[in-house]
């Protein structure tokens, strides 16, 4: 844990207006509606349609800056986590700097990670604020998976929502990251992958394919131990943790991790799948935001992201004072 009070001060997020309901998914893809709602956990998915990945990032950042106009000139670090940018180059972060009127004296770059991206991003922001002696940094997560999902692939079509989030870090932050634990297993790189695929008209598209069984085995086999390890690294017993927020992959994955975790404290594992679907790297910040609104996040929260790569990261967030999400 840093000794400079650097932590999360505020989290905002953006969800597109258009939705697909579980009934529509059931009608269109042949799944039982009960299966989609109770097993996958989805009641609706958010679809960006005409909005780009950068448009969603702008909306999340503008929401973060509401009542904090002074920050436009004070943010010195901007990190954007995305793997679905509308352009291969330039980076989303530079467009965001311009469109949101942030200072030109800003360090900004994109981070190419999927569902582990939020934890990695926190680590990067925290490290840079400390080492460069900066006061304000913002982490953006933004993904438009609808742009890479094959309409005929019912596995991915019934899982992912488009979304973005913005997290402000400062020396007045209330949620302070403790010790982290990270990991990578590139041997399974093609378990969640975007490849070029030709459609009926001979057009080449980037299409997502997912080996659900590989992802499940990796997640449920790995993450409960990672949670245990990160608690030990922070000198904590798992029973001292108030909430566990894993990446919101699906209800089934969340409950499987909870059941296999030490002490099986299933009631402490947060599940907001029914509200948002799987929003990739935005799922953890959105859950932190929602949990705060739902009555508070407690004193010690484990967050754990995992997915594309395969890649994973886990950290304990310590609530110093009362984290009210910038209000």
């Amino acid at each position: 844990m840093n000794n400079e009070g650097i932590g999360i001060e505020k989290i905002s997020y953006y969800l597109p207006k258009d939705v697909i309901t579980s009934k529509e998914l059931s009608d269109n893809y042949g799944y039982d509606q009960d299966f989609i709602e109770k097993k996958v956990g989805v009641t609706k998915l958010f679809i960006a349609n005409d909005l780009s990945t950068t448009d969603m990032a702008v909306n999340a950042l503008e929401s973060l800056l509401e009542n904090k106009e002074y920050l436009r000139n004070k943010i010195e670090l901007l990190v954007v986590c995305t793997q679905t940018p509308e352009f291969q180059l330039p980076q989303v972060s530079s467009q965001l700097q311009s469109r949101c009127g942030l200072s030109n004296s800003i360090m900004s770059f994109d981070l190419s990670l999927g569902c582990s991206g939020y934890v990695y991003g926190i680590s990067v922001i925290e490290s840079l604020l400390v080492s460069l002696k900066l006061d304000y940094g913002v982490l953006i997560t933004t993904e438009k998976y609808s742009s890479i999902i094959d309409d005929s692939d019912r596995n991915t079509k019934c899982l992912f929502s488009d979304a973005s989030s913005a997290t402000l870090f400062s020396r007045d932050g209330k949620l302070i990251p403790g010790e982290y634990k990270f990991g990578t297993d590139g041997e399974l790189y093609d378990s969640l992958i975007v490849r070029k695929k030709y459609d009926d008209r001979g057009c080449k598209n980037n299409i997502l394919s997912m080996n659900g069984r590989n992802i499940f085995n990796f997640t449920v086999g790995k993450i409960p131990d990672e949670i245990s390890d990160v608690c030990k690294l922070n000198g904590l017993d798992e029973r001292e943790i108030d909430y566990f927020i894993t990446h919101q992959a699906s209800s089934y994955v969340i409950s499987s991790i909870a059941l296999r975790s030490k002490y099986s404290q299933t009631g402490k594992f947060i599940n907001y799948m029914s509200l948002f679907g799987n929003t990739v790297s935005s799922s953890i910040p959105i859950a932190l935001h929602q949990l705060t609104n739902d009555g508070g996040i407690g004193g010690k929260i484990v967050i754990s992201g995992f997915g594309v790569g395969l890649s994973w990261g886990t950290v304990v967030l310590f609530n110093k004072g009362d984290f009210t999400n910038g209000r």
């Binding site: 097993k39 996958v40 069984r213 499940f216 699906s250």
Partner: peptide, 23 residues
């Protein structure tokens, strides 16, 4: 069992018997 139950079931089989069950 639905598709997710089967995935979870095979995960337990692999772990309990220390074998791999390729797709």
């Amino acid at each position: 069992m639905d598709s997710l139950d089967v995935i979870s079931f095979l995960f337990e089989v692999e772990n309990n018997f220390n074998i791999k069950v390729p797709e």
